[in-house]
């Protein structure tokens, strides 16, 4: 069916040409053998240069020390090895491309051709044969003739997804294993009555007098280290991380529970209630806590209320006090799940 005719080199028949009729102009390489020879040399030298650059890449890789640093304007101080590997491999592939384009533009034929397409629809006899095959298959399999087979098959297919429901059930309950359900896991943290509040990373316990007005501490429960080391439980840190800030007690407008602060020191979860980014971006003068991910802003002087952004819930507050040695401790776990909302939370 293919019918290739050079276009432009001969007058096209009116009404048959899908492309505009532009007269073909011969190139210098078409008429002048010297020009064609020059183009051939250009293309070949680009490919040859590409080969040389690949060899240069290997030489650079072997000879240049990876710690050698050179100064290049605009880029600054960069590793010589990185620059040379990039230059040699980048230029070698660039030259292959440039050579191919030069070859196509200067030496390959540049006449436009028209290729006629055959019809998309199948011939009528082929479609009729396919329809007859389908009918014969239906007849020979007996799908219509044996209703018992048909009904049991439909029943089997309908019941097949049921095991998936048993598996997915574990998403909202602990399953038959008796483990805590995800709802319970998300609702509790390592904090409990009397658990000491320690500085994150240094695990140093904190006395109220260590924290001046305007001060901020990223803190975790003292039992976190043990939990992390023993059971490798990194989820515990994700739920228990808090920030402690101290403000003038007269500046506290509201809290989530009566007397949950300790002399102006308040503890709030560090995990954003929107999608769970850790936040410690606390502005000591406005008492605003800003989440850098989506700009949710919480007012820690006013019960962690959302003052801006997509978060839907107040930042959960942790009730705190001091133990008999004078160190800051939690008085209880969080009264509500920390972090982003999930559907059982309502």
């Amino acid at each position: 069916m293919t019918d290739i005719t050079p276009h432009g080199s001969q007058p096209a028949k009116l009404g048959h040409s899908p492309v505009a009729d532009v007269p073909h102009v011969l190139r210098a390489t078409d008429t002048n053998p010297k020009a064609a020879k020059r183009a051939e040399r250009q293309v070949a030298s680009m490919f040859l240069l590409s080969i040389i650059l690949v060899i240069a890449f290997i030489v650079c890789y072997v000879t240049i020390d990876k710690d050698t640093v050179v100064y290049i304007p605009v880029f600054g101080e960069v590793a010589l090895l990185t620059i040379m590997l990039g230059l040699t491999s980048g230029l070698s592939i660039l030259l292959i491309g440039a050579g191919a384009i030069q070859w196509a533009k200067k030496l390959m034929p540049d006449v436009e051709v028209v290729q006629m397409r055959h019809e998309m629809a199948s011939p009528a006899d082929a479609t009729a044969e396919a329809a007859a095959n389908y009918e014969r298959g239906k007849e020979e399999s007996g799908f219509a003739r044996y209703p018992i087979i048909r009904r049991t098959l439909i029943g089997a297919m309908a019941l097949f997804p049921i095991p998936a429901l048993f598996l997915l059930r574990d998403l909202w309950s602990g399953g038959l294993s008796g483990k805590a359900s995800p709802d319970e896991i998300l609702s509790h943290t390592l904090w409990r009555k009397g658990e000491r509040i320690v500085v994150d990373e240094t695990y140093q316990p904190i006395k109220p007098e260590d924290l001046p007005v305007g001060g901020l501490v990223s803190a975790v429960p003292a039992n976190l280290m043990e939990e992390q080391e023993l059971s490798g439980n990194l989820d515990a840190r994700g739920k228990a991380a808090i920030i402690l800030v101290r403000m003038d007690p007269t500046e506290i407008v509201a809290q989530q529970g009566d007397g949950w602060d300790y002399q102006g020191i308040v503890a709030y979860s560090k995990i954003c209630t929107h999608v769970g980014c850790p936040i410690a971006l606390y502005e000591q003068r406005t008492h605003h806590l800003l989440c850098p991910c989506h700009q949710s802003t919480f007012d820690l002087a006013n019960a962690g209320a959302v003052v801006f952004g997509p978060a839907a819930r107040n930042m959960p507050q942790l009730p705190i006090g001091v133990d008999n040695e004078g160190y800051l401790v939690a008085l209880d776990d969080f009264a509500q799940p920390v972090g982003p909302s999930f559907w059982e939370r309502g």
Partner: peptide
């Protein structure tokens, strides 16, 4: 806006 990082905690 920067909070204080006291010698007591840091």
């Amino acid at each position: 806006s920067m909070p204080v990082f006291s010698d007591g905690t840091l």
